[in-house]
Design a binder for these strands. Sequence first.
DNA 1: AGAAAGTTTTCACTTGATGGAAACACCTTG
DNA 2: CAAGGTGTTTCCATCAAGTGAAAACTTTCT
Lengths: 255, 255
Amino acid sequence: MPGKPPASSSTRSVERALALLAAVCTGGTGPLVELARLVGLPVSTTLRLLRTLEQDQFVTRAEVGGYRPGPRMMQLGAQALSHEHLVPLSRPALNELVEATGESAYLSVTGPGATALYLAMAQGTHSVRHAGWVGRAFPLAGSAAGSVLLGRTPDKGWTSIASGIEPDVTAVAAPVTGPGGVAAALSIVGPTYRLDESAIGRFGPLLTHLAAGLGAQLGGDQLVHCSEKPERTEAMPTTDPAHPAEPRTMPREQR
Amino acid sequence: MPGKPPASSSTRSVERALALLAAVCTGGTGPLVELARLVGLPVSTTLRLLRTLEQDQFVTRAEVGGYRPGPRMMQLGAQALSHEHLVPLSRPALNELVEATGESAYLSVTGPGATALYLAMAQGTHSVRHAGWVGRAFPLAGSAAGSVLLGRTPDKGWTSIASGIEPDVTAVAAPVTGPGGVAAALSIVGPTYRLDESAIGRFGPLLTHLAAGLGAQLGGDQLVHCSEKPERTEAMPTTDPAHPAEPRTMPREQR
DNA sequence: AGAAAGTTTTCACTTGATGGAAACACCTTG
DNA sequence: CAAGGTGTTTCCATCAAGTGAAAACTTTCT
């Protein structure tokens, strides 16, 4: 996480607009006055800023329900995520974790502020399972994934936290180590009554193994030389727009 | 697409910042002067605006490579996409299309301006296949998906365009009709030498059938009453943060 | 070492952003 | 139906926030 830029070299109106954008995208959808209250701005200022966001389609406004995220946000968000090529790479590991453990599996990276962020997930197979979602932020402190993202992984290669941030939930996590250090965390999360010491002891090494496999694909493990990038899966963004895949003998046109 | 807000009720500095954000997210990653040239702003202005974006982690700046999308963009983008619950719903249909046709399959919605946007996709199984990606925008005009999104679906329920926007590529599309009309387009795209009249004639009705199934799940077909929402798949955003899924007997805490 | 290119800072200037208040529109209740 | 409450939009005097040219600084390349 690079140092913060100096606070004085900022632009207030942009800050305010970004705060509004964040509010709309994180569930604060609704009428104008509600958003103004949420963000703490005068209504006329809020309207003007939301108008600007709407003009460029970062938000849209419906007669019923008010403001919500616009197509531009989806486009740019998807393209930003596509820069994180870890997402498709993690798909097989996430699926395997669910198959082996039955619990919900997550790929997390460091998020805004002191948070971590789910970038990809696979739902557990049990009726009673942990329900997170892609894009969700959670505290680095006190979470298993947060711990490994902060570089606090014990020598055994994985860590677990029982009833940490929330009661009755246990998480097991292992770091995905890239060339620059810990790039992401691979974790499973489930109810504590299922993820007891015995289960944790079994799943921990599996997590470490799969995380290491992911890290190896990032070029993180110099002892294992990857001769070629693996084939992209069909999950989330398949091609990095900044570095499109080979045209595969045909022009890159779409319908 | 609602009417544009009045141009005079906008905020220039916000517009500029959003243009920079879009430039960074759509591949315009690089050093400061390059972004300034790209967007057509003075360097010092560009620096200040990018500093603001960086402060709130919409972009990050590396010593090598310059600016790129930040974690905030990924979080909000993912959450904005999660509002589009069509994405997970479309997963089975996309997979079935690939299985039946071997071609790349896409779910598209209306995007910014006169564009459409890939919201989800499944890659074709052939070595020579169409290569699009989630988040990619393409013109409504001249594309099969664009046609059906614009409401121009023939009575047969599907449409196709051969060598339209690009040579040697053919697309077949059918509309996903929701309560408010055409909500999305389901399409397959592949090389014209494979998608000839015969193949198109076979795949068109399949597309219409699957698109109708999707539309029915949106409550679009009032003749088919859905008694319950289908189970969410494990693809992209599984839970709408604004309307989280039932806690499934456990607190919604994450690691 | 010098030139070129990228980055950051400075500050006089002005205009763009602001927000309170009024006007307008819609909904609910007695 | 009228009054009250709430949400939305417009207006405009004000000033401070945003600007951008230029200088200073740093890094890279030949």
